[in-house]
Simulated scan of single mutants.
Amino acid sequence: MPLFFSGEMINAYLFLNTFLAFLAFSFAASAVYIFNDFLDLKDDLIHPRKRFRPIASGEIDKKNAILIMLVLASFGVFISTNIIFHALIVIIIYFIINIAYSVYLKNVVILDVNVIAFGFVLRIWLGAIVTDVNLSIWIVILTYLLALFLALAKRRDDVLIFLNSGLKMRKVIDAYNIKFINITMIILAAVIVMTYILFTLSNEVQLRIQNEHLYLTVLFVLLGLIKYLQLAFFDENTASPVSIILNDRFIQLMVFLWVLSYSFILYL
């Protein structure tokens, strides 16, 4: 994202660095997910969807999973070490925060979803470091807010499972309810749209990209968020943001139109 927003996507050297950083963080995140699945194994076994995960379903035994986790973590560290030293620091911070999350922080209300959101901020920090791009405060705020919005949507699914089956997927679920999450998601959606509008109208941004028409992309952000709220409140289907993006044609269209319009304004 820093590379895209800086208008340097066509820079082959920076693109290669970004791709390597992407691989490093993907390996690190995968190792963290395996570690978390180990700790959540008891809960995953009774979860309607997570019980089909490789470790919970028995598709991969624990010894092989540990081996895979160590290999992935090693790859993440090795690749980041060979890009730039500061990239390694970001990866290590990510490991520390997520181990703390898996062991304890996921049981602390409000803090649990904020830790998840911060993980995505670390991703864009890594992207900025390996491309030597000055990270705009706008992208940091928008990334954090959107990640927090999606994390709450996932937490909402855990509350629904508890209400429908009486099964507690997380200890922290007692501190959440549907009304609280709905109100918070609506507030976040409004703040995201307002922040994005301010971003598009910022003199700093308009001068940097030499274009005053960025505000036109607000439409796609607004419609995409409204659709996501509809999926959450009406269809009650926000367990997996990735699954939604891969299957919901309307959201796919909004993402495509946003990328297309933003690219046209930024690069042409």
Rank of each mutant, 00 (worst) to 15 (best):
15 F>T: 14
42 K>M: 01
235 D>R: 15
45 L>P: 02
122 L>Q: 08
31 A>F: 14
116 I>M: 01
129 I>E: 00
260 L>A: 08
227 K>E: 15
36 N>L: 04
181 I>C: 01
53 R>E: 09
73 A>N: 06
250 F>V: 07
191 V>W: 10
83 I>A: 05
95 F>I: 04
134 N>F: 15
185 M>G: 10
68 I>W: 10
133 V>E: 11
65 A>L: 03
111 L>Q: 03
182 N>E: 12
103 V>H: 13
21 A>L: 10
256 F>R: 07
186 I>T: 15
258 W>N: 06
219 L>C: 06
9 M>Y: 11
7 G>V: 04
141 I>Y: 12
103 V>N: 06
220 F>H: 01
63 K>S: 03
112 D>K: 02
208 R>F: 14
233 F>N: 07
51 R>C: 10
217 T>A: 04
148 L>K: 13
265 I>P: 05
90 V>L: 08
63 K>Y: 11
83 I>H: 06
235 D>H: 14
11 N>C: 04
162 F>T: 00
157 D>A: 08
268 L>S: 09
161 I>G: 02
89 I>H: 06
51 R>Y: 05
6 S>R: 09
63 K>V: 10
42 K>I: 01
187 I>A: 09
217 T>R: 08
86 H>Q: 15
203 N>E: 15
219 L>F: 15
76 G>L: 12
31 A>E: 13
169 M>K: 07
219 L>M: 14
8 E>A: 08
199 F>N: 12
30 S>F: 13
116 I>V: 12
244 I>C: 02
259 V>C: 04
231 L>T: 02
7 G>E: 03
265 I>V: 05
124 I>W: 05
65 A>M: 01
228 Y>C: 03
195 T>K: 10
126 L>S: 01
216 L>S: 14
39 L>F: 00
120 F>D: 05
243 S>N: 08
216 L>D: 04
209 I>P: 04
138 W>C: 11
236 E>G: 02
249 R>L: 10
264 F>W: 07
91 I>M: 11
41 L>K: 01
200 T>E: 10
193 V>K: 13
72 L>H: 05
177 N>T: 03
134 N>G: 14
190 A>Y: 12
33 Y>A: 12
76 G>I: 13
74 S>P: 00
5 F>C: 03
136 S>C: 11
212 E>H: 13
144 Y>T: 06
32 V>F: 10
47 H>V: 01
188 L>F: 12
209 I>H: 04
107 N>I: 05
255 V>G: 02
40 D>Q: 03
36 N>S: 09
230 Q>P: 02
264 F>K: 03
31 A>C: 13
11 N>S: 07
260 L>P: 03
1 M>Y: 11
263 S>Y: 01
119 G>P: 01
219 L>E: 10
100 A>T: 12
226 I>P: 12
193 V>I: 15
32 V>M: 14
162 F>Y: 11
81 T>S: 15
203 N>V: 11
132 D>S: 15
20 L>C: 13
143 T>F: 09
35 F>E: 04
31 A>V: 07
200 T>F: 11
147 A>C: 10
172 V>Q: 07
21 A>D: 07
240 S>K: 01
3 L>D: 04
168 K>G: 02
117 A>W: 00
